[in-house]
Design a protein around this nucleic acid. Structure first.
Lengths: 363, 363
DNA sequence: AAAAAAAATGTAAACGGTTACATTTTCATA
DNA sequence: TATGAAAATGTAACCGTTTACATTTTTTTT
């Protein structure tokens, strides 16, 4: 198999009998090179199939023009839209993007961080895996002054820049909505409370119960991973409760959908017997029956904001050091899975006039 | 903001008073370096926070150890599992992976190809976008002898190595199953017939109709993109048919789910009025009601096989030149959305004894 | 203890760009 | 036409590795 030799600026220079410096400058469109020379160089470069050697350039320039992103999984609408948002901004700004996913494993997250560190990304965006224990693997970035922005699953210790929604409030809203629908025994299915997204939603859940005078019952808290089998187990656990709960706030739409299916298979009526609210506003919400009420978590905005802040920092505009927490708008979307009675529209409308917090999807 | 100076092998060498050659060799674990020297070097490298400069190394080695993958979208179970399969193999083999997605746009696909080409990936894996017109943008890879493997959405012109399922057979099986359920007027909703996945499924559909003596009716073919709005339109088109069709073979699970929802909203009973079969076996299949029959398209296998062949080729084991088409096993999964009568189990069992083609999921 | 072989280390030239600084060419002006 | 400034181009060092080849050190053999 013949290996074609790569064309370099040396080849172009000697073919045109000029210096490599001029070729280099021309290819970067340096205004100092004359129009005619530039044209000759561009034409020949095209003809010879020249391509920049990024390694030589980066080696010399000491920067990579690359942003890394570590996500905890790939297969959710939420993460996909975060990626879309990040990509939009990085592409516009002329940065390359390397996507790594940890599949919810701490070990893989460490490996990814190490890899991106060695690849010398100029900046990093990350969401923590399910079982991440600490942030030691991000220390090397800080030591080398490589900016890191966390989103969604973050450690809110005040030391890091994070892009999040108000999980506290969202949990409160979801729970409050169920209470307003008449629920008094509300299950909360969530994931590891070590991840602060989940602990804050849990806090919102408890606060809402408290504000409405409903005692918190720890038997109604189900902590689980976000797998299908775990979701089925959670549903089974609900079925064993006596009396049955009348509401469920579930921290993930997919889990909510599986729980709902399992409950329905066991002749539970949704929302009549148990009203449900999920989280994220994934595509499945409107495909399951009844359509799933949820918290809209706009991934694209999260991605755009995270990337924009990172890049501004890199370009010297704005400074991440001063910006610790960026909160993205989120909102409750009410669908049939949580509507126990018909008078809901009136109720909600009155409420909205006061708070303007939730969004109704009629029909 | 102080820029920490990077540690290089020069720093290590001069600190230990040895040559950079020895340091370089030690860091690569070259057996020619003595144990003690190696230990000293590793210890110091760790202490000083040394990290390999990939640019210098790649510049010198003239290879990147990187595989690129271009996918037509990110948010489907299928693509996600392909990525998982690819990643498993590339990681094991010590290759890095750059993921690019074209969002179904030809222009973005070209941009991605160009980018990965300039990044000098050692090999490329790709699935074509919805409206890709030609493969010119992959020519540069061929010219430089960079191997390219296509999967899923491919151009089967015999010139490229492709990893696919037998779409022809799958389309046949799906349609045959509907016919065996008693369907005689079967709609086929699909995407651009220029993409050969879809044209082959369509061929399978027509062949099955023919074999069972059902004339093909072009009014029952609905070509659309794979968006939610397009799916709703397709459902509306079905509703306008008189008489209504009694079966639908839809080339994508998400689209099938949306169509099913829209039909149900219009009081069509699934499967009694219209039996449905989707394609891919995405997670939604078991979340919608009734559960969606589908063709199981094992993305993880596709990804693994594509990556394995590519890497073997790069390592000189096996040769892609000789391997044009690799076919991955796929199979029909029967669920409630396509079961018109109760005697199905008997029917299917008899059929399976003969052909062993389909897999029943009871319950 | 000398000679030969093996092991360990060192020297220096790539790899392909970028850019400070130096030099040459072009051109307006005196 | 000589002069100087501006424009265009050239020279060469540098970025941090790898590795063929050369040299030194250690070990084995006689």
């Amino acid at each position: 198999m013949p290996q074609h030799k790569e064309v370099t600026i040396y080849d172009i220079a000697s073919a045109l009998n000029i210096s490599i410096a001029t070729v280099s400058r021309a290819l970067k469109n340096d205004p100092v090179v004359s129009k005619q020379t530039k044209k000759k160089i561009f034409d020949l470069a095209g003809k010879m199939g020249y391509r920049t050697n990024h390694f030589a350039r980066n080696l010399r320039n000491q920067k990579t023009n690359t942003i890394g992103i570590i996500v905890h999984e790939l297969n959710s609408n939420f993460i996909t839209s975060v990626l879309a948002g990040v990509e939009k901004v990085t592409t516009e700004a002329g940065y390359d993007l390397i996507i790594a996913h940890s599949s919810e494993s701490f070990a893989k997250e460490i490996a990814n961080a190490k890899n991106l560190f060695h690849k010398r990304v100029d900046g990093l965006i990350a969401s923590l895996s399910f079982d991440t224990k600490n942030l030691d693997h991000f220390e090397p970035f800080k030591e080398k002054n490589v900016p890191v922005v966390f989103f969604d699953r973050v450690e809110q210790d005040g030391k890091n820049t994070v892009v999040v929604i108000d999980n506290d409030k969202s949990g409160y809203q979801a729970t409050e909505h169920l209470i307003q629908q008449g629920c008094r025994k509300i299950v909360h299915i969530t994931s590891s409370l070590k991840r602060n997204v989940y602990s804050k939603r849990f806090k919102g859940y408890k606060d809402a119960l408290f504000d409405y005078g409903i005692p918190y019952d720890e038997n109604l808290l189900i902590v689980n991973d976000l797998s299908e089998s775990a979701a089925i187990e959670s549903a089974m656990q609900i079925l064993k409760m006596d009396p049955l709960p009348d509401g469920a706030f579930i921290t993930n739409d997919f889990v909510a959908a599986v729980v709902m299916r399992t409950l329905k298979e066991n002749n539970i009526k949704i929302p009549a017997d148990i009203a449900m609210v999920g989280f994220n506003n994934d595509a499945i919400c409107t495909l399951v029956e009844p359509a799933l009420s949820t918290i809209n978590y706009p991934g694209i905005d999260v991605g755009e904001v995270a990337a924009r802040n990172l890049i501004n920092h890199l370009k010297g505009i704005g400074n991440l050091q001063n910006t610790n927490t960026i909160i993205i708008r989120s909102n409750l979307i009410i669908r049939k899975s949580s509507l126990k009675n018909d008078s809901f529209e009136k109720n909600i409308k009155i409420k909205n006039q006061k708070k303007n917090l939730s969004k109704i999807e009629s029909k």
